[in-house]
Design a protein around this nucleic acid. Structure first.
Lengths: 164, 164
DNA sequence: CTAGGACTTCGAGCGCGCTCGAACGCAAAC
DNA sequence: GTTTGCGTTCGAGCGCGCTCGAAGTCCTAG
């Protein structure tokens, strides 16, 4: 595997491991082997996004990032932790808008925990629905490959070659 | 369930049926109980898209639709068959661009079957990757809900409440 | 001393997939 | 006959999430 970002590593772990084990999750979220602080390019590589995107997330108020003496961004463990969360949520389809709301709740203190949980639960359900949609589309696509006929079909109940 | 479009019905079938059976697929693709020809609004309802979107697909060259005496669109079984395919592919993330290419291959005749199969196989793999990504995000989200702590954490290997 | 390269801020632009609105046509209902 | 309603074409606009480019700063190597 060429890419070596955090998500790719986690997916690799997951590859022959379905459903994902707690092991996989631990591996996924293990920030221990990330340097204490990284540059924007290093952070971008780890997260498999572009530096442009990281600046964009910061501008959007999703994460605060410190600067060094030259004004360059310094991503510490806390920032990376949040960005791992953010990129995973983005990857699973949570809109920027919701993430902005979520981090505003985080910043507002622990009395917002229930609302945050609500958001997570709703997002979990959204992911589940999406997986079911994709699973159905996958099966249909595999079916079409297996019985392939042409036109826009087969898409018919029988693998009847006359519908080709 | 309020919605009664084709995809919803298929998903409903799928609900307590994992992995999807051939039964589910047959149900999904069964166009038998659709009228021989339908108006744009009826087609849109069946496909769970807007009439605007159907016109857009037609403008994009994805499907040809006949007209009645008044110039109104008439969706016959063949058009509906193609649209079922198109909307399913869209729902599973295939870009418009690729769909345009695909239908151009269909229109080009059966010597393009191998290339069409290549596209389907590649798309199948894309869906699989996407499902694995989502499955991982789902597990991470469930883990976070279960061990919920606050901040952007826990996202740590242990459900240690001090990381809240 | 200067050239290269990695970074900074800022605003603008882009690709995608719709989504909408204006202006119009046609046909049945009142 | 006019109102209602569903359709038509066309081009423009929008929301999203980046993505880019210009112009400048800073550090290091040669």
């Amino acid at each position: 595997m060429a890419t070596d970002d955090l998500m790719s590593r986690a997916l690799e772990t997951l590859a022959d491991d379905d459903p994902p084990s707690v092991e996989a999750i631990h591996r996924l979220v293990d920030l221990a082997d990330i340097p204490e602080s990284v540059t924007i390019t290093e952070a971008a590589d780890l997260l498999d996004v572009s530096p442009h995107t990281l600046r964009y997330y910061e501008r959007a108020g999703l994460v605060a990032v410190a600067r060094d003496g030259s004004g360059h961004r310094v991503y510490d463990t806390e920032a990376m932790r949040r960005l791992v969360f953010l990129t995973r949520m983005r990857l699973s389809g949570m809109p920027m808008r919701d993430l902005q709301h979520y981090v505003s709740l985080v910043d507002a203190g622990k009395e917002t925990v229930p609302e945050r949980l609500d958001m997570l639960i709703e997002h979990r359900d959204t992911i589940r629905r999406r997986i079911r949609e994709l699973t159905l589309s996958l099966t249909a696509t595999e079916y079409k490959i297996a019985t392939y006929g042409g036109s826009t079909g087969p898409d018919v109940p029988s693998p009847d070659p006359t519908t080709s």
